[in-house]
Design a protein around this nucleic acid. Structure first.
Length: 293
DNA sequence: TTCCAGGGGTAGA
DNA sequence: TCTACCCATGGA
């Protein structure tokens, strides 16, 4: 079954997928030969389906192995629209970026969208798995969670869904430590059990009506989520007022704006302060590669 | 072997 | 609000 969705222009499937590393994390599978992205997903009625995405010009194309009911199709459309931020409008950012040489590539490249997970739960867990660890370790931990706690696809049992909060909540700290999470284990367990208990309502945080600083406070209240993780999640939620400062941000900004001198969060914010509500976009899509050295 | 990674929590000032 | 210290694990 094939579903074709129109996106707000400009849209570029590949630039959306490759804007950050999520496409390398399970259960996503990127196929370089066909330039398509796949994952196994469990629908609300319990059915497990395989979804394959690719781009056709300004459109997102979804292929499903089997036929879906009308309700299932609506759910897939809704989820895909969220994951690829099909309605996102970056025109105000482009209008400013056009005049800045290092950001003038953004409009033509349709920069701005970052691939999101179907649920904020999955994005929170994945961001948590990027803290104080190398990227190869993040991939290993996320894969371990999917293999250990995900539901297998009936078509191919080696492919699994991303674990639900319930599946993690039923686990034990020792089990999570054993699969390599280390000191992150109690944070993830507390998050999962809090979500199941209704203590943390992650879906409510998608509400565009929430003020950004209020949303930031709710994210910081989640276990294992500090400033870096909260700001990264704000970016995924379409709020660009804060930069997620990690070692990579420090390295880039130090090299390109401070002549290699040591910098902290304050110095990084100074550089992009003029971008206001587009600060994180300006930082993320700044063409550091074009600055030489 | 040592250092540190796409940091966060906590205690103490 | 800021700083010092600890935290598990694997890669470099």
């Amino acid at each position: 079954m094939k579903i074709v969705l129109a996106a707000r222009s400009p849209f570029n499937f590949q630039s959306t997928v490759h804007a950050h590393g999520w496409y390398q994390l399970a259960p996503w599978v990127w196929d370089e030969a066909s330039h398509s992205l796949s994952r196994v997903e469990q629908l609300e009625d319990g059915r497990i389906v395989s979804l394959c995405f690719h781009g056709e010009g300004n459109k997102l194309v979804i292929e499903t192995g089997e036929r879906l009911s009308a309700r299932q199709r609506d759910e897939v459309v809704h989820t895909a629209s969220w994951m690829f931020a099909l309605d996102a409008d970056f025109e105000p950012f482009y209008a400013r970026a056009d005049a800045k040489p290092r950001l003038a590539h953004c409009r033509a490249g349709a920069c701005g969208r970052l691939l999101r997970s179907p649920t904020l739960w999955e994005d929170v867990v994945k961001v948590m798995m990027t803290t104080n660890i190398q990227w190869s370790g993040t991939k290993r931990l996320v894969n371990a969670l999917v293999q250990r706690f995900g539901e297998p696809s009936p078509d191919d049992p080696s492919c699994r869904t991303f674990p639900t909060p319930e599946a993690i909540a039923r686990s034990r700290e020792a089990t999570l430590r054993k699969i390599g999470l280390g000191y992150r284990a109690p944070h993830l367990l507390k998050l999962a059990r809090g979500v199941v208990a209704g203590e943390y309502d992650l879906d409510a945080l998608k509400d565009p009506g929430l003020l950004t600083h209020v949303l930031r406070g709710r994210l910081l209240a989640l276990p294992g989520i500090g400033p870096y993780a909260a700001h990264t999640l704000l970016f995924l939620l379409g709020r660009y007022d804060y930069i997620g400062v990690d070692t990579e941000a420090v390295r880039l900004v130090s090299k390109h704006f401070y002549d290699g001198r040591p910098v902290g969060e304050r110095e990084i914010n100074v550089v992009f302060d003029g971008w206001g509500e587009y600060k994180a976009l300006a930082y993320w899509f700044w063409d550091y590669a074009g600055m030489g050295q």
